[in-house]
């Protein structure tokens, strides 16, 4: 089962909570929106999703996907 971090830019208000609480510091606020700095270092823990007040960042669970970018 493959997880992928998804950001809904329209809903993000740049509050910075996810950035602060991301255990591996892979998120940053740029022009008022959250941005994933380095997908590889993201450990898919879902803390950002749990803390986001605007549901603007979440882990999309792709079941048995064979797609090219299935990640390492």
């Amino acid at each position: 089962m493959e997880k992928k971090l998804v950001i809904i830019e329209d809903w993000c208000k740049g509050c910075g909570i996810c950035v602060e609480f991301c255990p591996v510091r892979v998120l940053e606020i740029k022009d008022g929106k959250v941005r994933l700095i380095d997908e590889d270092r993201c450990i898919k823990c879902g803390l950002c999703e749990m803390r986001c007040p605007d549901f603007a960042i979440y882990l999309e669970v792709k079941k048995d996907v064979e797609g090219v970018n299935a990640g390492k």
Binding site: V6, K13, G14, P53, F55
Partner: peptide
Amino acid sequence: MASRLVEEYFRKETLPNIWCPGC
């Protein structure tokens, strides 16, 4: 597309919510 919980339990047309950043 939004998270499963949002897709299933929220009225997406009403989002984003009116709450201030960080509320």
